[in-house]
Design a protein around this nucleic acid. Structure first.
Lengths: 359, 359
DNA sequence: CTGTTAGCGCGTTCAT
DNA sequence: ATGAACGCGCTAACAG
């Protein structure tokens, strides 16, 4: 690469720009000092309108782009926010990230994303990497995280917000919804339909508070109805259609298989539908299937998957608001719980044994 | 915030760390100079194993995290890569980004993502924002971009690679697949099944080379078969199930509606299936429907959506390889075209008029 | 193999 | 309202 600029030379408008223009170049072009250029960009009201116009014209001519690293080094703010999510598959967390980004971009923040593929140690290391890159604040998914992660955030004084879960008693700021209430309501609905034998299809609950809370909601509803969940009717699997379908197939082979199977998200629900389809089990006549998160994947199945609509987009916007408020020194809430809503479709119906008597 | 460090004081291991440790702190702790600390971190082989061990121990004790902004400012590399995609919805581009990130993270790069929602002016402005943040290189989706974008990249000497399209004659490095060939092959398949009246469901082709190429592939196959595409059988719509369903409903209302409708991606294909379902049109008996990209959304429909598998994950990995090679000064190819493959499911069948004679 | 020195580009004093 | 001078934390260049 050619070094086109020699010490003291002026970078004229029509120069071949092999080196990017600096604030000093802009200053010379406008006949002011670099301090004034900085002021025009960061606190324009503190500079005379005429000089301001001259500077902005020079900025335009030289197509000056401030050097973010230098700015960050000096001002100790990078205007970057880290979003650390489990995965982009199935567009679940991606939709939250997208909403976060939309809101933050409007305030000139950029979003740096990283996936950890449901590995909390990996989550810790990507967060460290992002801190090194200087991100000002973080959004994480879920309430379960490595203690070392919180220590790291504390040590580096980085604001953060946990999402996709809501716990008023948590010491960590969180914005989400009541995962247990979602499945609790769903289970009550199924119990009212006469179901007594339930199955659960879930992600591994260890280190995954969403899966754990969603399972707990089901268990609580059953307990309240004097029922219980047979351990043989529980299957944990990775979050993928294939794995969910395989797990559901196992449940269907059981001699006393459940009449209602609750998936802790729509991927499990749809995987269950696929298994039923392949094995010739009729839904909802023979068995009822439900999901959580109300995705288009579930909505478009036949039968349509009964699910719980979770406010995953709103969570992203609210997380952005929260972080902006903190970075600007404004007040903020420690916990925000947004409502969920059951969405009834045709994958649920009366329990088989009771069909006749309920008609 | 308390300033815990006074000039010249040593930051001991058990100090309350209110200020993050700097390379100088590590150097003092290890009894070396800050330059040696830098060397241990950036070219460890150039430092004596004993000193290296002492430095690393100090790094560990002080939980030192290098200051990325200072490093970027000095070394003129940020170790950040920008990934600018149209959208995260439907996990299409998200899967490519995810693969890119997986590969780049392994080389200590972080990925900064931004969406432009199919707006090339917005794309230009987010790219400028990312340059300001100092990203070293870019991945973009598609071959169509604002000329100003390329000027900006050129001016700032940022390597970039275009993806999801392959054009050997393009001056811009690109990694993707032959979008026209995908729909061309699909159309030939449908023609062989006896179809003569085709419909096209597509994203707005202006400024969207994928949509344009996919439409062109269909047109070419028809031309080669002595057929043509009736303008009334073409519908452009935003990429969403709702919009696709509405557009398809219009086609179905036509007196001489097509017997085969090609969606330029699976979202259009599934939207078309939904419209048929709602209006009681049988697939594939009354009409054949196809998509592109072979998503699980299409795969799980009934009937399963015939589609074209595009190597969107491989494109992400290859893009990462390409950028790493360039950033490390190694050689690289200007164009890489990966193969696509038809995936036959049950949304396609013989054209209605020919059913009897073909059996 | 290691230390000294200088400066990356900006924002922020403190002057005027 | 504007300019001069300094330093953020790090790494490249050079010397030893």
């Amino acid at each position: 690469m050619v070094k086109a600029r020699s010490a003291g030379s002026r970078l004229l408008v029509d120069d071949a720009q092999v080196v990017r223009a600096s604030a000093l170049d802009v200053a010379r072009q406008a006949g002011v000092s670099s301090a004034t250029v900085s002021r025009v960009l960061n606190s324009p009201e503190r500079v005379d309108p005429h000089t301001r116009a001259r500077v902005l014209e020079a900025v335009r001519q030289l197509r000056y782009v401030p050097h973010g690293a230098a700015r960050s080094l000096r001002s100790r703010r990078s205007w970057m926010i880290g979003a650390v999510v489990p995965s982009f598959e199935y567009a679940l967390y991606a939709r939250t990230t997208s909403a976060l980004q939309r809101r933050l971009n409007a305030q000139a923040y950029s979003v740096v994303v990283a996936e950890h593929h449901y590995d909390l140690a990996k989550e810790m290391s990507v967060a460290a990497q992002l801190i090194e890159h200087g991100v000002d604040a973080f959004m994480f998914v879920g309430l379960d995280h490595a203690p070392e992660l919180f220590a790291l955030l504390e040590e580096h004084q980085r604001p953060y917000v946990l999402t996709w879960g809501a716990d008023p008693r948590s010491p960590h700021p969180n914005i989400g919804f009541d995962n247990a209430a979602a499945t609790h309501a769903m289970a009550r609905h199924l119990i009212a339909l006469g179901h007594r034998r339930f199955g659960l299809l879930s992600a591994e609950p260890q280190h995954n508070d969403r899966a754990r809370a969603r399972g707990a909601g089901l268990r609580r509803a059953l307990r309240e109805a004097g029922l219980s969940l047979d351990a043989r009717h529980i299957r944990y699997a990775p979050i993928s259609l294939r794995a969910a379908e395989a797990a559901m197939s196992e449940l269907l082979m059981l001699p006393d298989r459940p009449t209602a199977v609750l998936g802790t998200n729509d991927v499990f629900g749809v995987g269950a539908l696929l298994a039923c389809r392949r094995l010739g089990v009729r839904v909802p006549e023979d068995i009822s299937i439900t999901g959580v998160d109300n995705t288009e994947l579930g909505e478009t199945q036949q039968p349509g998957l009964t699910s719980v609509a979770t406010p995953i987009v709103e969570v992203g916007s609210a997380a952005a608001e929260h972080l902006i408020a903190r970075l600007e020194g404004r007040g903020w809430e420690r916990c925000l719980s947004l409502p969920v809503q059951l969405v009834f479709r045709t994958s649920t119906g009366p329990a088989p044994k009771l069909r006749r008597s309920m008609r």
